[in-house]
């Protein structure tokens, strides 16, 4: 049985105009989970609760089988965290920053940090304020990875980066999980990045989890259905999610193509409809719009 490295159960966090509503998902060891949602969906709030940076109101979070609140020091020692925004002492150098942050981690390896800096093309002697936004993100990732964490939690690590750098970083993540010791929870609104590397996908919208399952079965299950407007009827519309109607036709997605097909054939024996593979972007847009 696979070991569950992260388990979020019934997480509730209330703000005045927003709340996380019984968020639940889990991540087994050695896999990458893409945590997807539009801006303001609750991704960062969930991650901050996992990292114990904000207090949640209900629910439980277990990391490495430990309660994340009661064992926060032990848990944080084994996690590499990259936040949405990078916070550094701007007047200090990269080298000083590595030495300062590294001193808090039991398994910090200076040679790992130096190698990552070299791979990312970051000059150790430079001051933080001299680094571009992309360089700061890379530095954050280097700092998170240098102590060989068992769980990497990345909050929108690729946003603001150019496609070349994004690709480099995604390749790096793929490399990390090769040994199956490390897991990655990676939040993003860039679905193409998630599609490239994630094993599991969790979609959140307005503080609620819509889907949390294996990426391959998700992409296999959901199909885009397109047909002429002449075939549009209530009976078929309820079987589709995220229905859009245009001048000539309508479309939607379904996770039960067999049933849809059977109802369609019954209703319109001579009718035709098209199916296409649904990308993660399409699934997200259709499901989120409907919610």
């Amino acid at each position: 049985m696979e070991e569950t490295i992260l388990r979020v159960d019934g997480l509730v966090k209330r703000y005045d105009r927003f709340q996380l509503d019984k968020v639940s998902f889990s991540l087994p060891r050695g896999y990458i989970m893409g945590f997807v949602g539009k801006n303001g969906a609750g991704k960062s709030t969930t991650i901050k609760c996992i990292m114990n940076l904000i207090k949640y109101d209900e629910g439980s979070i277990e990391i490495f089988g430990l309660d994340s609140r009661r064992n926060s020091l032990e848990v944080r020692n084994r996690i590499g965290y990259v936040s949405e925004d990078q916070y550094f002492y701007e007047e200090m150098t990269v080298e000083w920053t590595g030495s300062f942050i590294g001193s808090y981690f039991r398994h910090w390896k200076e040679e790992n940090f130096n190698r990552l800096l070299k791979d990312f093309g970051i000059d150790k002697g430079k001051k933080i304020k001299e680094l571009s936004k992309g360089m700061k993100v890379k530095l954050s990732i280097a700092l998170a990875m240098a102590h060989s964490p068992e769980l990497l939690i990345l909050d929108e690590p690729t946003s603001g980066l150019d496609p070349v750098v994004r690709n480099e970083i995604l390749d790096l993540f793929r490399e990390i999980i090769q040994d199956e010791k490390c897991s990655i929870l990676f939040s993003s609104h860039i679905t193409s990045d998630i599609e490239k590397i994630a094993d599991f996908v969790t979609i959140i919208d307005n503080g609620r989890i819509i889907i949390s399952e294996e990426k391959d079965s998700l992409m296999e299950k959901w199909k885009v259905v397109k047909a002429d407007n002449g075939y549009y009827c209530g009976e078929l519309a309820v079987m589709l999610r995220g229905v859009k109607r245009g001048e000539l036709g309508f479309s939607g997605i379904t996770d039960n193509l067999k049933d849809f097909s059977s109802v369609f054939r019954k209703r319109f024996p001579e009718g035709k409809f098209k199916t296409e593979k649904a990308g993660l972007d399409e699934i997200l847009l259709r499901l989120v719009k409907e919610e």
């Binding site: 020091l73 916070y87 808090y104």
Partner: peptide
């Protein structure tokens, strides 16, 4: 002020430090 300006208290509380 340096911690406030750089928001580095957020960095510190994300480390394994009480």
């Amino acid at each position: 002020y340096e911690d406030e300006k750089n928001n580095t208290l957020r960095l510190l509380v994300s480390l394994p430090v009480r």
